[in-house]
Amino acid sequence: AVVIAVVSAVVTAGRRPALRATATAWELVALSTPPHWLGIMLLTVFSFQLRIFPVAGAQSLSSLVLPAVTLALSVAGVLAQVLREGLEAALEQPFVVTARSRGLSQSAVRLRHAFRHAATPLLTLAGWLTGTLLGGTVVIETVFSRPGIGSLTLQAVTSRDLPVVLGVVLLSAFAVVLIFTVVDLLHLVIDPRLRTTEAAL
């Protein structure tokens, strides 16, 4: 989802209105499409008709492709919109004019300067969405017949298996804390202003 969002936002931010409108349209479609319906469509095309990927199960890495794409598309739509807004705001800042006056190409300005400023909200949102994916994939696991934490939690709650429920909750809490710790560290790497503030304190 992050890769799709970065490519879509970097290529279309501040570019021709038609290109930007096309990207915005697919993002809105991805956001408004129910993930289980998208999963069924992907299964119909790539598993039943083209027979490229397996229909169900978890026997190989190829069986991960369709579930991952199903989950990634809606998330990528949100991330791309947030990143594009940040990029377009950053491209209007005075430091972009300075970078261009030094002879940097448009791609270098976008990737080396504007992207670093626009990536902060992208990282925060990506971390939060990653945490929500831990238990929010029950429907996708059911569509693709994959064993996962979501279906395990649902079965444990239904059967009142308290040790399993507690284990899943503790594991999810640890994963969320770890994810946000990594996100905070990446903020320091990407945004030099935060390192300056930290050093001053």
Score class of each variant (00 low, 15 high):
Pro35Cys: 02
Leu185His: 05
Val109Met: 03
Leu162Ser: 05
Phe46Gly: 10
Ser47Trp: 06
Ala200Thr: 14
Gly14Cys: 06
Ile40Gln: 04
Val97Met: 00
Ala5Glu: 09
Val139Arg: 05
Arg15Pro: 08
Thr130His: 09
Arg146Asn: 11
Leu38Phe: 15
Val6Lys: 15
Leu87Asn: 00
Leu38Ser: 02
Pro121Trp: 01
Ser159Lys: 10
Leu91Ile: 02
Leu201Lys: 07
Ala200Pro: 06
Ala90Cys: 07
His117Lys: 05
Arg102His: 07
Phe48Trp: 11
Leu50Tyr: 15
Leu134Val: 05
Gly167Gln: 00
Ser47Gln: 04
Ala58Lys: 14
Val96Cys: 06
Ala5Gln: 06
Leu43Phe: 10
Leu123Ser: 07
Gly77Cys: 06
Leu61Glu: 06
Thr70Glu: 08
Ile179Gly: 09
Arg20Ser: 06
Leu166Lys: 15
Thr22His: 09
Glu198Ala: 13
Glu88Ala: 10
Phe115Ala: 14
Val96Pro: 14
Val75Gln: 06
Ala119Gln: 00
Ser151Asp: 13
Val165Tyr: 03
Asp184Leu: 06
Ala99Tyr: 04
Ala25Val: 05
Leu154Tyr: 11
Ala68Gln: 01
Ile179Ser: 04
Gly135Ile: 02
Ile52Met: 15
Leu38Trp: 06
Val82Met: 08
Thr22Lys: 11
Ala18His: 07
Val157Pro: 01
Arg195Asn: 06
Thr181Trp: 09
Thr44Asn: 09
Thr196Lys: 03
Ala114Glu: 04
Thr24Ile: 00
Arg100Glu: 15
Leu201Trp: 05
Ala175Gln: 08
Arg20Trp: 03
Ser62Val: 05
Val55Phe: 03
Gly135Leu: 00
Glu92Tyr: 10
Thr197Met: 03
